[in-house]
């Protein structure tokens, strides 16, 4: 039987753990609200961008000499996977679910004889992928110093990726991130960003839209917009990821707090039982001592 002192220490330590997880949960809840707000505010820009680009892509997309960002390189031999994860752990399955999705994709691509390159954003994804795919890494973006995610961060990542594309380092780029659905549900998602893809169903619906005039020209506008589109998609993904991370952390910490509560209850019962046993023992000793006299 564990002695009373040990039990008491256990209870005290679980209690302080509970305090920490409770605090982390509350911090995550506050951050989640902020993250959701920024994701919300970024939406009009992203939606408009997408609408204009898909309209333009329809107009010039199939023409000869369309921008490579739209038409692609004509091959799909080298794939760049941009894996976005959190900088910190303690957020449930958030990081591993993205990594799992990326891993599955890596295996599929390798099986098909493609070359895979990996660019990670966030420390956790890099740690997990380094284990078996260290040879495929081409870069890592560290966002641990970033307090509040801005468009400039996304633009930096985008220009890195675009630079690699211009240098002919890859043919297809895909980003991996968690789409925020609710506090308890985040969906790991893979989106192809280069060459740009647009929803076919949406295209059909938009055909009735007004006929636009483009200044300076359709090609020039598209040329200008495509790199911005890449940055916008990355920014949107980073924001979704940020909200998802806080949501995942919040529910993970909520669970941890509840578990700690259960544990304290169990330990307290055990503590009381042993305390009673000790008292009973002492009484028996006294009584039998008295009887012997």
């Amino acid at each position: 039987m564990p002695n009373l002192k040990d039990l008491k220490n256990r209870i005290a330590s679980v209690k302080s753990t509970r305090k920490i997880t409770k605090a982390m949960q509350m911090v995550a809840a506050a951050k989640l609200r902020r993250a959701q707000e920024s994701a919300e505010m970024a939406r009009p820009y992203a939606e408009k961008m997408e609408a204009v680009m898909s309209g333009l892509a329809r107009a010039v997309g199939n023409a000869e000499g369309a921008p490579r960002l739209l038409a692609g390189t004509g091959k799909s031999d080298v794939h760049l996977l941009v894996v976005m994860t959190a900088e910190r752990g303690l957020c449930g399955g958030f990081n591993s679910s993205i990594v799992k999705l990326a891993r599955t994709r890596i295996h599929e691509l390798l099986r098909d004889g493609k070359t895979v390159k990996i660019l990670t954003v966030g420390k956790k994804g890099r740690e997990q992928l380094k284990r078996d795919h260290a040879d495929k890494f081409v870069g890592h973006v560290d966002l641990s110093e970033v307090k509040r995610l801005g468009y400039a961060d996304a633009a930096g990542i985008a220009s890195d990726i675009l630079g690699r594309f211009d240098a002919g380092e890859f043919d297809v780029a895909t980003i991996f991130f968690n789409r925020f659905q609710s506090v308890i549900s985040q969906v790991p998602t893979a989106t192809q960003i280069i060459p740009a893809q647009f929803d076919a169903a949406e295209d059909a619906a938009e055909d009735t839209g007004p006929l636009y005039e483009y200044e300076p020209s359709e090609e020039a506008v598209l040329e200008d917009l495509l790199p911005r589109g890449v940055a916008t998609q990355i920014f949107a993904a980073l924001l979704e990821n940020g909200a998802s991370e806080q949501g995942a952390r919040m529910s993970a910490m909520d669970n941890a707090t509840r578990n700690a509560g259960d544990m304290i209850e169990r330990l307290t019962i055990e503590y009381n039982r042993s305390r009673q046993a000790v008292i009973t023992n002492e009484l028996i000793e006294i009584i039998s001592g008295a009887e012997a006299l």
């Binding site: 204009v52 333009l56 007004p210 006929l211 636009y212 005039e213 483009y214 200044e215 300076p216 020039a220 506008v221 200008d224 917009l225």
Partner: peptide, 19 residues
């Protein structure tokens, strides 16, 4: 401030997109 020069748009302007 359009790429090809400044322009002013008023209501019922013909649909256009400019950088």
């Amino acid at each position: 401030p359009g790429a090809d020069g400044d322009m002013t748009a008023m209501a019922d302007h013909a649909p256009m997109i400019t950088t």
